[in-house]
Design a binder for these strands. Structure first.
Lengths: 143, 143
DNA sequence: TATTGTTATACTCTATAACTATA
DNA sequence: TATAGTTATAGAGTATAACAATA
């Protein structure tokens, strides 16, 4: 039999989870929607390095045909670019255009500004609490 | 001209936002998917009180026809029930079946358990930090 | 006439299966 | 023969427009 979970821990877990989900939803709903969510996910993956279509499908956990169509849309919109892989003719390397990079950066900036506005009135001590809590959360979800 | 945002505040805002989004995504991806997200959203809205189709469409921010189809699915699956409104023949009141309530409760329990497991190793002081940070977040996103 | 909800139709994202091109 | 990616087709979500029933 497993240890009983103290009520306080269970309540905290539930509250932490819900607070994160509330923040997450507000961030997504209140900010720039220049592209659809599945498209934005791909653009973010391309931010730091080009990827093949297959890598993107795996990263986004969608099928190859689905990624193929998403890339059609992004390329048609001028946000991404497909180029032949010189080493392997079967592969296509996908890169971000300046316009695509701009969409990602604008969206991230919009989301961060949203949060900055919400943290502005807090005291130094409260900000320190959030700083530590943020680090704790990132640590425990990696475990 | 607006005040410049101190670097530390901007960094914290970005980190808080991302931590919440990471937690939120893990909660959604790692746990029970008995019904699709848009269906779960409706079931949750019905948890505490019945709603009309129009209310649900407004709450979920989808069109009336879209909600109509979602309700078709939930009713066909035995998770929700459409009943005539005695006061207004145009309206249909949607309620949760026992099975629908069970789906919601199981999913919530699964998500909370996931978070409990992640908080278990933390010290009393760390838990207190999370407690305060959670309350702070809920407060600022309501502002 | 206004409101609630469904049906008609179309578009997009999802998938699996079949196909092409390359290794 | 195996792999990378696209095309073919189907299923389910979204929407707007048109319709039925009721207020």
């Amino acid at each position: 039999m497993s240890d009983p979970v103290p009520d306080a821990l269970h309540t905290l877990a539930s509250d932490v989870r819900m607070a994160c989900q509330h923040v997450s939803r507000r961030v997504r709903f209140d900010n720039a929607h220049e592209v659809a969510p599945h498209q934005f996910g791909v653009l973010v993956k391309l931010l730091h390095s080009p990827r093949t279509a297959g890598e993107l499908a795996a990263l986004e956990q969608v099928s190859a045909p689905s990624m193929s169509r998403t890339l059609n849309g992004l390329c048609a919109a001028g946000l991404a670019l497909r180029t032949a892989d010189p080493d392997d003719g079967r592969r296509q390397v996908v890169t971000l255009t300046d316009s695509g990079r701009s969409v990602v950066e604008r969206t991230i900036a919009s989301r961060d500004d949203w949060m900055v506005r919400r943290l502005k009135g807090l005291s130094e001590r409260e900000l320190a609490v959030l700083r530590e809590a943020t680090d704790l959360l990132e640590r425990v979800i990696r475990a």
